[in-house]
Design a protein around this nucleic acid. Structure first.
Lengths: 186, 186
DNA sequence: CTTGACAAACCGTCCAGACGGTATCTTTAT
DNA sequence: ATAAAGATACCGTCTGGACGGTTTGTCAAG
């Protein structure tokens, strides 16, 4: 109506922008901050425009999830590729990627988004698939109790970061990483 | 107005009922299921009645949190009391209590409630206090990297149970418990 | 007769999604 | 080559419902 119409059409870019904004909002204001109004407005798009790209809110969260998992996946794979030792490779990659997240650098939205992930049965199922696929894929090299345990501990640390429940200084973190990597080859 | 008035007045019981229902709802429908309307209705109380006991929603969540933490605390303490070895006592109790939750017996509401816990800054802070107090209290006996690691792994397993992301049979769980307890004394 | 324990109706806000439009891009027919 | 014919990418408003909280009223017990 007004005049934002004649903006050059860049569907892919707008889509990406919407996802980024949604992630940022969930980071800043928690999951509740992800409303269609807020996201669309912050992305400089009308609500109708948002709903054109994502037919409903769930689809938006879904897209967000895809985006983040893809990113996570890529980092894991990169870490695996640079590890010469086969045994426990995946677990060590998992450790590195998980521990690398927290300080402050982490992709905006990672944290709070996870809550939506847990809360939303649909996304929960998708995460389950990811875990299942990976644990089958790396059953040979990362199936030991030590590896499983190490990855669970990573999840615990990640949760602690999320909730800021434990105060771990750099030394403590480093110690944990070392112990965990030890478990991955044992 | 109608006739629920002449029910014998049992404020404490109603309060407890409200908490139970809230827990059950969060278990069945996720955090979003905890609405004043839903809770009050399911508890057979009017919304006004609910708000009489808990002045606002946060107070309700708060009460719920208190209830659950108290229960958790009691179980931990019982487990500690029955452990003759001082070293890693708290960690082993933590392990036992965490692993005992999942099968299906778990207190309705534990799982989903945690999400509210993470999402709600206020409750997040309270949990942080719990962790801090305990980790100070048991710094001597449970301060080792092994213990910390074991407890993080518990959190990870607990998260996995929450999300039903990993399929762990009884044997795998037993193996994990054993390894974790091993870490607690090492 | 006062106070605590409720009931019931109501309010303001927020939000997801529907809807009907318009502008730009792509394909097709000529 | 070009114009018509869609298809796609948006815009802006409206609505219906949910939800947190308030208010006013009612009873029963002490």
């Amino acid at each position: 109506m007004t005049e934002a119409h004649r903006r050059k059409k860049q569907p892919e870019q707008v889509r990406q922008q919407l996802l980024e904004v949604a992630a940022r909002l969930s980071h800043e204001q928690g999951v509740a901050g992800i409303t269609l109004d807020a996201v669309s407005q912050a992305a400089g798009v009308s609500k109708g425009g948002l709903l054109h790209h994502f037919p409903n809110k769930l689809a938006l969260l879904d897209g967000l999830f895809d985006d983040l998992v893809t990113r996570f996946d890529r980092e894991i794979e990169a870490a695996i590729a640079s590890d010469p030792v086969a045994k426990g490779r995946f677990t060590r990659a998992y450790i590195d990627v998980c521990f690398a997240l927290d300080p402050a650098t982490d992709v905006p939205g990672w944290r709070m988004l996870t809550i939506a992930l847990i809360a939303e049965p649909h996304l929960k199922a998708r995460w389950r698939d990811w875990v299942r696929r990976r644990s089958v894929e790396f059953a040979d090299t990362d199936g030991s109790t030590g590896c499983v345990l190490a990855r669970f501990a990573c999840d615990g640390v990640w949760l602690a970061d999320l909730m800021q429940s434990h105060e771990l200084d750099a030394a403590a973190r480093a110690g944990l990483v070392e112990s965990l990597k030890g478990l991955s080859v044992q």
